[in-house]
Nucleic acid binder design. Structure first.
Lengths: 333, 333
DNA sequence: TTGTAAGCGTTATCAC
DNA sequence: GTGATAACGCTTACAA
């Protein structure tokens, strides 16, 4: 064999017209059972496969979607992207995964490319700035859903996010319940909307337990890898600190090892809870408590909505919050 | 505006023919400087973008490649995929990232889909079984390169891999140099080619230091999450064990926490070295030594080769080994 | 129930 | 240096 089989080849081989073959393949229109069998047999024998470029061109639909993700080597992102991709594949869509590295220019370049490739929909994950689709010059706007990223114009998208506020609130509150008197929050210096929500949850849990939030004493921003000194300093100034709610597990792990290095006993002296429930949490010593996001649910809801928007069976303007779950392990007992 | 601009629109708006517009866009064939300016101006004003479906159909080329990866939430894979995708994007290619979950059926389904979408090339990462492209019925075989995965037929691909053997050898050897008398290897139960190479490196380092490899005493297979008991047992039977070379950092972290739980002091009682140099290695306590793969290099070489194969400027049959580097941290001092 | 043919947006061949 | 036009493989009126 010397070239790929086309519908025309199948038509000739099975003695029908291309139109009929197309109808059989897509199971639309009418045709006799006999014809169906005949055509399918030839398709099977030849191993014919649809040429999607042609199909896309004709139908103006690509059966592909693009995902913009800030950092695919981050566990949470990788996990949710992986699940989305799987569900999309099972529903006949393929996925362009684009790693924006939190770079706005890159993001725009990717969007242009995705538009040019004719993706049917867009999934936008996280990122610091509000997402603005109007940068695209596509006239018939590509439908998109946002995960954890507030869009500039909420009315033309679906927003999906974990209940970061509640997760942070529950985690912090559980520190109090475990006996902490003065927990603090350890965060990074990016201000994504999820980070803001988590901070608010922390603050409200503080005030519920009779403490006022003071950013100089109740918060530490972990920037460099050598955070041990920063933590040491803060602990010396505020010896009453006896708990950490970390905005993610990477920071939690960082804090944990710093504290161990400073000779603290965990959880006896200081308790820690992280966020995202990364796999290595069960392998840290002590095992790390964490707030788990329901990535299965997030992925499912995301796919349902983007395909819904593509098929015009879903509507924009929705905002969906997915519950989270606090996983208690040794670090906060 | 109500529909996307096509070349035809650009042609009308700039008063030339579609052929000329195409020539200008692709900068091939001849046209006057004046025409070029005129056309480009219209393109800029309209925000015209190539319709890739049409271009693909006509040229029988899609400017896209597919990546088969076993598990994108594994740090090493995510990292190398991310870098490959970035370089490909900069060279005008977009990437379908397919998570096979080490499932052969899924893999085949993905391959069929990628073939159908008309990808120009394939990048196959890792996996236990040898890769067999002949499962595809594409006549004009799609070029592919393999990373860390031995292809069934080596002659029609390019094989790229880290020097797993050397990494394992160096790591093990350095355990001896640090004073270990009886190091063992901690591995998983998958037999990828890289795992085999690492095991061989370990064995040879053992024999170089006068020890014979005995799988019942020099090797532990970490299967479940509750590996602490297994390790405890082995240590009781073989109290001379004073070093672990773990086949990856996940297992290393697992071993490390188990040992701490068993009251061992690291690195005083037992030293540990992992593989892959994951980011959290510097956040474990003690910090974890590890063999670092050169993902930048791997990604660059991979892209050079796959594009080379696509453009017929590279040849198959090559086998490229990328050096690795042992990063010493506290766990093996 | 099936066939014919137009057309999707490109590129490439050929003519001028 | 430029323009007509065929062709890529498919879907879908419209005919039969």
């Amino acid at each position: 064999m010397n070239k790929k089989y086309s519908i025309k080849d199948i038509a000739e081989l099975s003695g029908v017209s291309v139109a009929t073959v197309s109808r059989v393949i897509n199971n639309n229109g009418r045709f006799s059972e006999e014809t169906r069998k005949k055509v399918l047999k030839v398709i099977k024998k030849t191993g014919y496969q649809t040429n999607f470029s042609a199909k896309n061109l004709r139908m103006n639909k690509s059966f592909s979607v693009g995902i913009l993700v800030p950092d695919i080597s981050n566990y949470f992102f990788a996990n949710v992207v992986q699940k989305i991709e799987k569900i999309l594949f099972n529903r006949g869509y393929s996925t362009f995964i684009c790693n924006t590295a939190r770079d706005e220019n890159k993001e725009l370049a990717y969007l242009k490319m995705l538009e040019s490739k004719g993706v049917d929909g867009l999934i936008i994950i996280s990122g610091a700035k509000a997402f603005d689709i109007s940068k695209l010059n596509s006239p018939n706007k590509i439908p998109f859903v946002c995960i954890d990223r507030k869009p500039k114009d909420r009315s033309n998208t679906v927003f999906i996010g974990s209940d970061h506020y509640q997760g942070a609130f529950d985690a912090t509150n559980s520190l109090f319940q475990a006996g902490c008197k003065f927990p603090i929050i350890a965060s990074h210096n990016r201000s994504s909307s999820s980070a803001v929500d988590r901070l608010n949850g922390f603050k409200d849990a503080l005030s519920k337990n009779g403490l006022d939030f003071d950013s100089s004493r109740n918060q530490i921003v972990i920037t460099t890898n050598d955070s041990t000194n920063a933590i040491d300093l803060l602990l010396k100034e505020n010896p009453q600190i006896d708990g950490f709610f970390a905005i993610n597990d990477s920071i939690a792990t960082n804090v944990l090892s710093s504290l161990l290095r400073l000779g603290k006993e965990i959880p006896k002296d200081i308790k820690i809870i992280g966020f995202d429930d990364e796999p290595q949490d069960i392998h840290s010593y002590p095992t790390l408590s964490s707030v788990k996001q329901d990535t299965d649910k997030i992925a499912q809801v995301t796919v349902d909505n983007i395909i819904g928007l593509i098929d015009h069976t879903a509507i924009t303007g929705e905002s969906i919050t997915i519950p989270v779950k606090l996983i208690q392990r040794d670090s906060s007992l």
